[in-house]
Design a protein around this nucleic acid. Structure first.
Lengths: 187, 187
DNA sequence: CGATTCTTTGAAAACAGTCAATCTGTGTGG
DNA sequence: CCACACAGATTGACTGTTTTCAAAGAATCG
């Protein structure tokens, strides 16, 4: 399964064979069953986590007990709780697998060694974070500017790989509408 | 006006007097009149921009011609279009002063020299970006999980300094609701 | 003071949420 | 192979919220 990551990272950063081998040597591969939890609120998130296959979502409960999807992630994406990771404080989020999933992980301590040892990896990582931020700005714009139907279409067009694999009621929770509304939008 | 920034940056990062002087020497201070534009869509944003006094907003037009506020920023905040800055591509956003405003700026070229020359500044800058991202995640959660009234209250409580200084119809555009709705929530 | 901008209000229409019921597809065990 | 259970998706009726459009009050500014 590391091969999936290797192919990904070679596209994203110019690494030597030795550097790739270093990444492999320090990685931990884990398999998750469908619905298995990877992060439960209250825990501290300490991983960098790359999805080699499968699908996860990051979500959070609001006071009334309903859950809201902050992010989906499929293969070749990363999934993380930045805030808990950075500040080492208990997370308010949950992460679960939506299908059988294989992840490749590095602990924070290991990762920080790696990005110091491999400058191209550091550059890549900084760009990844920058792009994540930019994507979140675009999502905010969509949320405040678009009516429900347009949000739905934008999601479908922007993330077709995700759209085709996650239950619609989770798409609704991602878009901030009820599943019934989403359902009615669709015919 | 640089004194405002000096006080800010000394709180945020442990800099020597020489480093602060370096920051000052390479900075450009600019004054903006009320409603003056700092970035017009189509332009490339090349600045790091700290607000020493006053107030700005970053907004974007949707296809129907209405504008939507992505961010407000008051003194001791930064305002930037990350995407245009990072990728040197034309911006889709606009930035304007909502009052007489004094900004302290560094061009991208200068800033990159500075963060290489001053490690504590680099650390600070990375943390600033990380916190911005985390704040945007919280905002997304608020947008998808809260009813209109809760969004309003959260904004009021989270950013009282902003709330007390910007027109309500811009708050409405920030929260993704019509000004009439916001107005009715307020009685 | 008049002009402009901002905010509020009213009434109608459009939209989205809730609750309950039904439909559909999948997978399990008999 | 069928019957059943289950989760997910849809539909209907109803309620409540939000938008829209128009107009009227406040506030601000020259």
């Amino acid at each position: 399964m590391f091969a999936v990551f290797e192919q990904y990272i070679r596209q994203q950063a110019d690494l030597t064979d030795a550097e790739v081998e270093l990444l492999r040597a320090r990685s931990v591969v884990r398999k998750l069953r469908k619905w298995q939890s990877l992060l439960h609120e209250g825990e501290i998130w300490r991983l960098n986590c790359f999805i080699a296959s499968g699908c996860c979502r990051l979500y959070r409960f609001s006071d009334d007990g309903t859950d809201h999807t902050l992010r989906f992630a499929v293969e070749n994406w990363w999934i993380t709780d930045h805030e808990s990771y950075r500040t080492a404080t208990p997370s308010v989020y949950n992460i679960e697998a939506l299908a059988g999933t294989t992840i490749i992980t590095w602990t924070k301590e290991v990762w920080e060694e790696l990005i110091e040892a491999v400058p191209a990896l550091k550059t890549f990582y900084e760009q990844l974070q920058a792009r994540s931020y930019e994507a979140s700005q675009r999502r905010i714009f969509s949320l405040i500017s678009s009516p429900a139907e347009a949000k739905y279409r934008e999601f479908q067009q922007t993330y077709p790989l995700v759209f085709n694999r996650v239950p619609l009621h989770m798409v609704a929770s991602y878009l901030g509408m009820s599943r019934e509304t989403l359902s009615r939008l669709r015919r």
